[in-house]
Amino acid sequence: MLDRYYLENRILNFDKSYIVEGYTIAGPKENDGRLHATFDMALKDDMFGQTTFERAERKMFEHCISGAISKANMQTRDIDYILGGDILNQNVSASYACRKFHCGYVGLYNACATYVESLIVASSLLQSGARTALCVSGSHFSTVERQYRYPLELGVLRSPMTQWTVTGVGATVLQSEKDDLPKVTRGMFGRVIDYGIMDINNMGAAMAPAACDTLVTYFERTNTKPSDYDLIVTGDLGKLGKDILIDLMSQKGYDVSDNYADCGAMLFFDDQKTYQGGSGPACSALGFNALFLSNIRQGNIKKMLLVGTGALMSSTVQFQGDSIAAVAHLVEISR
């Protein structure tokens, strides 16, 4: 399956990408979950004082960007580029939020892999001369539900395979100036994988093969193995997708069952009725900035892999009978 020419492609190596600060805003349900009180800001009401959910999501982006900038002890003029995206059509939340910031804006879309994608692109920008970059990505349950599924108040039975779109935004400030900070050391963009899953309620199963492909390719290209890392984290495979990935990896000869976590699967408690856990671009952004970043700083994690997984379908192609394509990107972060 791994074609020779694809294996020979190069990994991106970075030595100028230092993670200064991370900032997170989470919705009320997320704050009641397992990561309770690790967020910089939690909303009591997911309308955030706005008239529509879309405006609320935009306001969350604005708050998160300015929060990250001030937490990093910087000012807006210190930020060269803002990179980010969400999963609303035409990336409106991230783009419109950036009306308030006079920084170069790079709008990115890779569904739930957007956060890791933005980390790789930002590191490349820093490598080629930018001083600072801010990566942001997020989602809002109520806006996503309307775009991809049903109106909120419609009384339907949810499938046990479904995941719950996470309400939240996470942002990370990167700088190129050398400092004693966690750093992004390697990056790799994955290829688009489609194993023919049609069920929009089972995104974990659609994305797991992409995550597997990216991880296996990375280990082969760098000649490393899962035990070389303290932690391997995927974005939003959910509980089912996590189990599938462990199976898929074991068939390729890699055992990841000991040091592998999934941001989506770990966000909620079982009794919060999210079934397979969280999903959405906010998953990896919240998980990394709220939990893993501080653990890297404290030295609990020395080297980790963060794999963003994205399902790339839209409701149009889904209704036209196309299967769900997925992609996974990877960054190596070390102390």
């Binding site: 046990p160 395979m161 194993y195 023919g196 899953i197 089972n202 199963a205 093969p209 089912l240 189990d243 599938i244 199976d247 079934y275």
Partner: peptide, 10 residues
């Protein structure tokens, strides 16, 4: 893979 996912799913 579809068969596998079907068996694995709750």
């Amino acid at each position: 893979y579809k068969q596998y996912v079907f068996e694995k799913s709750p």
